Amino acid sequence: MGTGPERGGELIPRPRRTPDALRVALARIAPHRLAEMKQQKNEAISLAAEHDTLGPLHGWMNVWAREVEVERRYDLSARRRAALDTLHRTSDKADPAFRAAMDELRAVEDEATRAVSG
């Protein structure tokens, strides 16, 4: 028997929607993405300072709350991996499989966004 979650389960509980909680959660479930998160956070801070608005920081938080939601849920991460695998196998945008994979990626992101927004 494996140590991972059952199909459809969660790797960890949903973290609070704060920068530190999201970073700690990501470190547990997808540590290979921490550098990406940090780079985007630094870009958001620079944009916020440049334009004197918190909008970029809110945007960063929304993106990473969604990303952590996908990474922590077996069902969403499996669906995203399958869609990305399809995209890597076909480069023809007219291929119905390409369009279906893009639609699935959008559906995964939408479901994760609803989950962290509600």
Rank of each mutant, 00 (worst) to 15 (best):
A49S: 12
D103M: 13
M37Q: 06
L47P: 00
H58F: 13
S91E: 02
L11N: 05
A101R: 11
L57E: 09
A82W: 10
D92Q: 07
H32R: 12
L34H: 04
V68L: 11
T90S: 14
A21G: 02
T86S: 08
L57T: 07
P56T: 00
M37S: 00
I12N: 04
R28P: 01
D75C: 06
S77L: 05
R66E: 13
L57Y: 01
A97K: 04
R106I: 00
D52Q: 07
A25G: 03
A25M: 06
H32T: 10
G59N: 09
H58K: 14
N42G: 01
R66S: 09
G59H: 07
P96T: 11
R66G: 03
A78L: 14
R23C: 03
T90R: 13
T53F: 01
R7S: 14
I29C: 13
L11D: 06
L76R: 11
S46Q: 14
R73Y: 02
H88I: 07
R106C: 00
P96C: 12
L57D: 01
F98G: 01
L11H: 14
R106K: 12
R16G: 12
E36M: 07
D75K: 10
R28D: 04
I12Y: 08
E6W: 10
R72T: 06
D95R: 11
R28I: 04
L105I: 00
L34E: 04
L57M: 12
T18W: 08
V63N: 13
L57A: 07
A83V: 05
R14A: 15
A48S: 15
A94R: 13
W64L: 04
G55Y: 09
I12K: 05
M37W: 01
L26M: 15
H88M: 11
R99A: 15
K41H: 14
P19H: 03
R81P: 04
R7A: 15
R17E: 12
Q40H: 09
R73M: 08
E36N: 05
D75F: 09
A101M: 10
L34D: 01
T53L: 05
L87P: 10
R17T: 13
A101K: 14
N42K: 02
R7K: 13
G55C: 05
M61K: 06
R81D: 13
F98Y: 15
L105G: 02
R66Q: 12
L47N: 08
P56F: 02
L57I: 05
T53P: 04
A78K: 10
A97M: 03
S91I: 04
N42D: 15
H32L: 03
K93F: 03
L76D: 10
D95I: 12
A101E: 11
Q40F: 02
A25Y: 06
N62A: 15
A78Y: 13
G9Q: 05
A44S: 14
A100E: 15
K93H: 01
K93D: 00
K38V: 09
H51I: 00
L84R: 14
M37C: 04
N42M: 10
E6V: 13
L87K: 14
W64T: 06
W64H: 11
M61A: 12
G9M: 12
G8I: 10
H32A: 14
E36F: 08
L47V: 00
L87I: 14
V68M: 03
A97T: 03
R81Q: 15
R106S: 11
R66V: 11
E10H: 13
E67P: 00
P96Y: 06
